[in-house]
């Protein structure tokens, strides 16, 4: 850090994603830091802020303007492309997340999979690309704008239902691979659309989570697909998988992804040992117990633990609870800056 000239937020984030020197560790939000209080501040409440580009941009930019993060991430939810694929969505109210009605799956077989011709012009995907355009126009090269495109494993849960998709992966691996291969078009097309709209990096959530899927599963079903995403989406990609994932971090580090957004169920130092500087790590401030339920001191302690371990970008482990206190979120960049000074 010493000897590195002062960087803009965007420069800082992009350098950290390449594991290049930075003036300080960036504070990054690969998922969502939207809260009900921030919605009120800028009059951009859920569910409208998931569906109207100006509201989406206005709520997203509070990450930079109010909280002091180095990134702006307008794609709060994980359902935008599933909506465009035809899934039924429960849009909920201001204080809750929109969700896919996974008990009403839209596909049963690989042959059912069709990416609709209006996939990228559907209001719920176009909202994202329009919001990214608005943010790039507003912030230019000042701050990193991060987009999000869901991976095929997550889309599989949404479109087939969690249980049927997991059972298929056990009973018929070839069919599962065929399904993933067909769904990947949605991931790639939506990712490219966001790159063209001006995204500086993309989060790619693919919920092969530690509770349901083993590290071996990751290698069998997803590693090669993720390598392909790196080849075809030509900006830094931040892979996001919740839960205990240290058993698959070695595989993830072989994909060429720029970064892995990791969960607080994984120890920072152990995770760094596994990835061996082949990939950056982003995270891993605990959401339910720390950011949501404790105070700034506890947040600071977790930030420092990550910084001490050499984590490349600091941020919450996942999309934060919508009732999280603003003071806790502001503590993340404050703690990073003070740690850097000392």
């Amino acid at each position: 850090m010493a000897g590195v000239k002062q960087m803009t937020s965007r420069e800082r984030v992009l350098a950290a994603l390449k594991r290049e020197p930075v003036d300080r560790t960036p504070v990054c939000n690969p998922t969502s830091v939207a809260t009900v209080e921030l919605m009120d501040l800028v009059d951009a409440p859920f569910p409208d802020a998931n569906r109207e580009p100006e509201l989406m941009a206005r709520l997203a930019e509070t990450s930079y303007t109010e909280l002091g993060f180095d990134t702006i991430m307008p794609v709060f939810s994980i359902i935008q492309e599933s909506s465009a694929l035809g899934c039924k969505i429960q849009w909920e109210q201001k204080d809750n997340w929109p969700t896919v009605k996974m008990r009403e799956p839209i596909w049963e077989d690989a042959d059912d999979i069709r990416i609709p011709p209006d996939f990228l012009t559907h209001p719920d995907t176009a909202c994202v690309t329009d919001a990214i355009r608005i943010l790039k126009k507003r912030y230019g090269d000042e701050v990193a704008v991060v987009g999000k495109t869901m991976g095929p494993w997550s889309l599989g849960y949404h479109c087939f239902g969690v249980e049927p998709f997991l059972l298929m992966s056990l009973d018929d691996p070839d069919k599962t691979k065929q399904c993933l291969d067909r769904m990947k078009k949605a991931t790639i097309d939506f990712g490219i659309a966001q790159i063209e709209a001006g995204a500086d990096a993309l989060t790619l959530p693919d919920h092969a989570t530690g509770d349901l899927v083993s590290g071996e599963y990751y290698e069998r079903y997803l590693k090669d697909l993720h390598i392909e995403f790196v080849e075809r989406l030509k900006i830094p990609i931040i892979l996001h998988i919740c839960g205990k994932t240290v058993d698959r971090m070695d595989f993830i580090a072989q994909t060429g992804m720029a970064a892995f957004h990791y969960d607080s169920k994984n120890e920072p130092a152990e995770s760094m040992d596994v990835v061996q500087n082949r990939i950056s790590l982003v995270g891993n401030i605990n959401n339910p117990e720390t950011l949501f339920s404790k105070g700034p001191e506890a947040v600071r302690a977790e930030v420092e633990k990550n910084l001490d371990a050499g984590i490349h970008l600091i941020g919450p482990e996942c999309a934060i609870p919508l009732q999280t206190a603003i003071e806790n979120l502001k503590e993340i960049p404050i703690a990073v800056k003070e740690w850097t000074k000392n």
């Binding site: 009900v36 994980i78 204080d95 969690v162 919920h207 989570t209 919740c242 996942c318 609870p321 919508l322």
Partner: peptide, 15 residues
Amino acid sequence: TASRGVLAAPSQQKS
């Protein structure tokens, strides 16, 4: 009330 607005991974969702 507190659990509203906590995002669950797709594998953890009830709906």
